[in-house]
Design a binder for these strands. Structure first.
Lengths: 213, 213
DNA sequence: TAGGATCCAGCTTTGGATCCTT
DNA sequence: AAGGATCCAAAGCTGGATCCTA
């Protein structure tokens, strides 16, 4: 990451920049541009996180998420990836100290509005932190999902589990494998996974940050 | 209706008969058998309601509803018709005195279980009355829907309105028409409609009679 | 027509698979 | 591999249209 813009010094500056971006057209998505828009917006806002960091804006402890939405309705068209999960450590994982909680504790949501002709433009950014109620639901999803993985039932965890947050494959190719322990302690090879937020949840909080769907 | 079975004398007898029917195979549904199973079950249980009555078992004030469900999951495959609605009287209609409330105040639900091969068999019957909370939601749906019709906006009432109960066309042919008054008091010709319960609701109360989805 | 319902095309959602860049 | 996400077939749901019998 080589930023063309200096890191924002405070939330106000970050929000200001994000709002200045509003209306900017961005390259159309397609098979060969996945993730591109997210990276463009990161650079334009001065993100410096890089692979090792927890947050995109480490000084501000703020995570940036672009989310593709329908230009008319504002409804998200996709779920939102949060972070990868170390399946092998599931039995020791706790919400309070988790990476996913840290990332979600403060998020700058940047909608990418997609119109009928597939054109994409930056929408109105919004800074969000989960309400107590929202965090309780996310924590519940976390426990339910990693609890099952911790019990050795990783194959029993489908993307159906979790009210707002789900676990799904996260790998460049279907053939990538990671190792986890089964119920009897045996080696189980499986595909790497990550946490995703359902579109119904991001849609709700984009409309109303305190929503309790 | 010429019953081959005498009317049940009390709830216990009705439930007994319904349970005795469990497992009975019934003719497969198809384009040309709509409603047939409902009538077969009515006769088998000794229903005497007929067109004029509010209830299928007038002495017991009980309504009979067959509901097609997936044999595996128990989930309803269709919404459930409750009764037709007089659109012209919408502005005077009240939940407390409505036909739909009377019908729903006590219902014998008879699931018709459909398996992979489309075979249909009678499932376990269950006698239900709405809890206070459930009735409040149904009353809310009623007011919301008929309120709009009463205000002359019948064309603005889509099947999307109503959390558990919705208004939908109810006519043998799409060309049948009924008359209602528009917002300016003008004649509006529209298709006759009836109240239906969403499959999500009947599914919930079949699993748990006191469910609050 | 009233009463018993189901049909089914089209839209939405789901959730496993996949793609790019560093 | 980690971080940024989107793809898209198939399953599920919606809701207007339709079917049978008396």
């Amino acid at each position: 990451m080589s930023p063309v813009v200096l890191p924002p010094r405070h939330e106000g500056e970050l929000l200001e920049r994000a709002r200045a971006l509003r209306g900017t057209e961005v390259p159309a998505a397609g098979l060969h541009t996945k993730g591109k828009v997210g990276e463009l917006v990161e650079r334009a806002l001065g993100a410096t996180g890089g692979s090792a960091a927890v947050w995109d804006f480490p000084e501000l402890q703020i995570e940036l998420k672009t989310v593709p939405v329908d230009a008319r309705s504002g409804a998200p068209r996709e779920s939102t990836f949060v972070c990868a999960v170390s399946l092998a450590d599931a039995d020791r994982a706790e919400w309070a100290t988790s990476w996913v909680r840290a990332k979600l504790s403060r998020v700058l949501w940047v909608p990418i509005e997609i119109d009928e002709v597939r054109r994409r433009a930056v929408g109105e950014a919004r800074l969000w932190s989960p309400t107590r109620e929202q965090e309780a639901v996310l924590a519940g999803d976390f426990e339910e999902i990693l609890g099952r993985v911790g019990m050795g039932d990783v194959e029993g965890v489908t993307a159906r589990l979790g009210r707002w947050m789900q676990l799904r494959p996260k790998a460049a190719h279907g053939r990538v494998r990671t190792v986890v322990r089964g119920a009897e302690g045996e080696r189980v090879e499986t595909v790497p996974r990550g946490f995703y937020l359902r579109a119904s949840f991001t849609g709700a909080i984009l409309r109303d940050p305190a929503a309790v769907p």
